[in-house]
Design a protein around this nucleic acid. Sequence first.
DNA 1: CCCTTTTTCGTCTCCACGACGATAAAGCTT
DNA 2: AAGCTTTATCGTCGTGGAGACGAAAAAGGG
Lengths: 228, 228
Amino acid sequence: MADYPPFAVTADLVVLTVRADELHVLLVRRGVPPYEGCWALPGGFVGIHEDLFDAAARELTEETGLPEPAGHLEQLGTYGHPTRDPRGRVVTVAWLALLPDLPTPVAGSDAAAADWLPVNRIDRARLAFDHGRILADGLERARAKLEYTPLATAFCPAEFTVAQVRAVYETVWDTALDPRNFHRKVTGTPGFVESVGRSTEGERGRPAQLFRRGPATLLHPPMLRPST
Amino acid sequence: MADYPPFAVTADLVVLTVRADELHVLLVRRGVPPYEGCWALPGGFVGIHEDLFDAAARELTEETGLPEPAGHLEQLGTYGHPTRDPRGRVVTVAWLALLPDLPTPVAGSDAAAADWLPVNRIDRARLAFDHGRILADGLERARAKLEYTPLATAFCPAEFTVAQVRAVYETVWDTALDPRNFHRKVTGTPGFVESVGRSTEGERGRPAQLFRRGPATLLHPPMLRPST
DNA sequence: CCCTTTTTCGTCTCCACGACGATAAAGCTT
DNA sequence: AAGCTTTATCGTCGTGGAGACGAAAAAGGG
């Protein structure tokens, strides 16, 4: 054991949120080489005594400035091509985070400037390292997970309406869903959402019932994407 | 970059196969401390210039003695709790491999003795390191993937019958499936299997049509587990 | 030649889903 | 205040897939 190849291990984050009917990802602009001036996923080195999940959670709170309330964080995959970082052998554990839209603007407590960018208008080939591929994998994971988990509610505040959940699906999948069938599906799937009892006020149109996240972790049966 | 915490990175494998109507996993008995004498997942250190996938594929061929023909290999997840290895900070990238039953017995080209063990009769708490959890995650991944991918055929030889695929599902899911509905489902799902034109001979009962893997990578609609 | 085994084809029912129509309940306009 | 717009919510209808079976086909074994 005294003789093993030494690696650097980093944690990189694909942090997604829905704002203004567009899916956004949190990116930082690199201030130092390599890839100076390029956009990159937020992340950093894992401490030698730090758990991988803790490192990801730490980076998430550091970059978003949140006390880490709601939201979802899961491991996405590990990327370690020998030449992915020109500085040396760096293996990165990538994580996928889904957050509700933050009223707090991203005030970088870090040196680099962080910002939300709409994923559909990002040139992934311009991202630093292999972050273009990591982002693509994260988007695919998020889109797939909406099908068979209630994770769409991770994009919503603690209390939300069915229409807000539908907006998440329509934004992430970039497709239109029938409001009536969607309503039947969400309220009919056991454990997806729980009624709060109150309704919205002051919005346009008929007031909508408020819900919170239900206990379900899997959707049975799954939410189906159109055009099957 | 000159100053980063040094990690060791390993690749560990959850190699599954179906034999004698039981799901088996490939394990090796450790010959050196720590966990000397315990069963462990096969694996080893990643070379400093080696790609992660290549390392996993290398370990797979080394441990199974195969020239790596059929089968499936995908990344399962990365495990890196600071105390998971008493020798130091070791992060392991775990991989899931699905193989057809090997007529070749596992002749360890390695020092440690390798063997197939039935997963239902393994005391996962007795496995070395955190391999019990990794194995549990691998089994869950395999069971889930059978639902929405045609990966059950990865457990079968190049040419197989519908009944063989059904046996895979019944073994991995540990449940009984109706042969008639299963047959309709498999042959009716586009791209799942392709007819070879020939049939089995010398078996008991009516000869069965032979199939090979189809081009589909996803099952639409998915294969549903009973008791929903 | 009958029996057993296994494959393969049909049938029937139920339920979920897609496509809509209709109604309810608010704000907004004039 | 009356009508209009907007959005939420409830119903209905037809289709198609899945579960539960029945039945025929095609082999081997006694």
